[in-house]
Amino acid sequence: MRVVVALGGGLLAASVLLALLGTGVGSSGLESLTQVWRDPTAAQIVWDIRLPRTLGAWGAGALLGLAGAVAQGLFRNPLADPYLLGSASGSSLGVALALALFGASPFATHWLVRLGLTGAAFLGAVGAVLLTLILARGVQHTLRLLLAGVIVGVVLGALVSLTMQVVPDVMQAMQAFMLGSTGFVGWSACLLMALVWLLCMLAAWMLSPVLDGLSLGEATAISLGLPLPQLRAALIAVLALATGTAVAQTGLIAFVGLAAPHLVRSVAKTTHGNLILLSSLMGGVLLMAADILARWLIAPQELPVGVLTAVLGGGYLLWLMHRGPTMPTRGTV
């Protein structure tokens, strides 16, 4: 328990430090914040662009970390990630169709402007999860759910490719979406992510005993008297909502959802309630760090943030894996 508190405290401290650092890293690399008080443009850049973007990166990472921990617990599979039920390709398809239809007809344009790309991505992500649930005929059967998720992912992914083939103008914008970007996160997006995070965290915390029960096997969980179908459906709702919100605001960020729970487990063995909270903090720290590096390394150009999360998270996980016998295994979930 002491480790859990220490890790939680460490991650919170890292979040605060990174957030402070993030406000100082901009289009000309690390810069002094002193001119904020004198130059109104500099002030606007820090308050309206850099700060929400930095906090937004944390929010999206936290949502993905949360979703990753829920997915791995729910499917009792260390390879599960937030995109498992098709939300990644669903949101891609939403964005691709929105981009392609934009300008196609005045009616479509009118609606798309109101919906926005974030709305399209969110609807796509949630729609894909619903489609997976329909194809799997409910939430009872883990393997059926996983397979349905894979099928939905592949088919919707193919439709995305087809859309890009037919309307090549959307290709570059799609590429930016698929690599993920935190560049356009504003205060309203931050607020939205914070609210969804609170909601999901609360729900996941209350539902976490189910995951602890599930880790002993479905039969055991049922014998403990847990109403599995309803609770599973609720967990999937949390998963879909958290993932959909993050993806809508920042695009497909790779690896955070998969790596964050593993990184936590490599330090602390704990119950799912704590694991979900810590994974969420870890995801936030990971994506915030990646975002800062993305705009720092080759400023004023940006690296796609998804590339950095994959390199950072993947590299660290690989190091942990080979460091010693602490490699997370299913038994320790």
């Binding site: 443009t41 662009i49 103008d169 930016a176 705009r295």
Partner: peptide, 22 residues
């Protein structure tokens, strides 16, 4: 180049040129 959006805000150009899609 893929720019940091704040680079554009800071540069504060006189004219922006863009396709209607974007």
């Amino acid at each position: 180049p893929k720019l940091n959006p704040e680079f554009v805000v800071r540069a504060n150009p006189d004219v922006i040129m863009v396709g209607d899609r974007n």
